[in-house]
Simulated assay, not measured.
Amino acid sequence: MLKTLGRKWREKIEFGIFTLPVLICIAVAFYIPFAMTVRYSMTKWNGISKNPVFVGLDNFKQIFTGDTNFADSAWFTVKYAVLYIVLVNVLAILLAVVLDMKLKTTPWLRAAFFIPYILSLVIVGFIWKFIFMQGFNSLGESTGWSVFALSWLGTPGLAFISILLVSIWQSIGFYLVIYIAGLQSVPEDLKEAATVDGAGPMRKFFSITLPLLAPSITISVFMALTNSIKVFDVILSLTGGGPGGTTYSIAYDIYRDTFQNNLYGYGTAKALILFLAVLVVTILQLAFFKRREVEA
């Protein structure tokens, strides 16, 4: 009995010794900075002074009652997130179905769609900025098409569309890989049985393939949701928030207040609100899609 208790305690001590360094790293990298974020969100601080002024919940009151930039950036982020999630997942599923048909060019096409994802969104933004400003101008002069003469980065509506299209172009390869893996896990005998029963391609897709893609859809929607809510780098490099601040996302608004206006306490409060929003939306999304997976 004593030997058994001694062995159990020894195993617990060994487990604690091996896990303690990991817990310390997690605390230093996440929990301590998060606690400092909560603290600084209740202060008025310019990032330089040694003694931030405690203001309580005044920063949060200002954000929700008197900050029109935050409201506009939140609306921009919501529009962007909804369209990005829907379009990138629909296009990725359609492309995955086509590339899963064992075509001769399938390996090359997969590589072509995935290569943009390797590039940083900042680099992609600068590349497309050159295309929109110089490339489209040259194409307009050579073809005479009016679509190339539009101010894609100088008009609020077109600037929003430009950000959305560039983001989808850069990231669709990532979601494509997820859906191809999901399609390859669909049992072939189910498709063959459906064919024997007289089901057509559309019927097989919506009755067999799509329900069995539920785990892949859950992962892809989760990734698209978190990435779209935190969109920043493509805006920084492509439009810089213009024209006239109409393409400010929440993340870009936080960056502008914190690092350009030196409102570190105020920007930290906005960052905390963004964190809580991402957390709540993510939990709801995962719960909803997991329930749909069980039903499917």
Rank of each mutant, 00 (worst) to 15 (best):
G200L: 06
F206M: 06
A29G: 00
I163A: 01
R110L: 05
L91D: 08
R291N: 15
L212Y: 08
L153P: 04
I283P: 03
Y252G: 02
K191Y: 13
L274I: 08
L87A: 10
T65M: 11
F126E: 12
A96C: 03
D253L: 01
I172E: 04
M1T: 14
V278S: 10
L103K: 13
I163V: 03
V280D: 03
S167R: 01
A71F: 15
G140A: 00
K8C: 12
L183M: 00
R256C: 01
Y252W: 01
D257W: 12
P107N: 01
S228M: 05
K3Y: 13
K8M: 15
I63K: 10
G16P: 04
M1N: 09
L263V: 08
K129D: 02
A149K: 15
V22H: 09
V280S: 01
N227E: 13
L95Y: 07
P52V: 03
F160S: 01
L238C: 00
M223R: 14
L274C: 06
F289N: 12
Y264D: 02
T68Q: 15
Y31G: 07
F130V: 13
A81F: 13
I131M: 02
N51F: 06
P201A: 15
I217Q: 09
A296V: 14
S216D: 06
P201W: 07
L236V: 10
R256K: 12
V82P: 03
D197L: 07
I219D: 06
F34Y: 04
S171I: 07
S228Q: 09
W128A: 02
D253K: 00
V82M: 07
V53R: 12
S207R: 11
L94P: 10
S41P: 08
N59V: 07
K204Y: 02
G267A: 07
K79D: 07
A92V: 04
A111G: 15
Y255W: 09
V124I: 12
P215K: 03
L238A: 00
V90L: 08
V53D: 13
L272G: 09
D58F: 10
V82Y: 07
Y266Q: 05
G173Q: 04
K230E: 07
Q170Y: 13
L236Y: 14
W75I: 07
G267I: 06
F18N: 09
V38L: 13
Q134F: 10
P201M: 11
V22Y: 12
K290E: 11
T209F: 01
Q134N: 11
A193C: 13
D253H: 03
R291S: 14
A277F: 11
V186W: 00
L272T: 13
G240N: 03
L5C: 08
G157I: 01
L5W: 10
S220R: 02
I131N: 01
L153V: 05
F30W: 09
L272R: 07
F174G: 10
P107Y: 00
T209I: 06
L2Y: 14
I172Q: 06
T268W: 02
A35F: 12
I273S: 08
W169D: 00
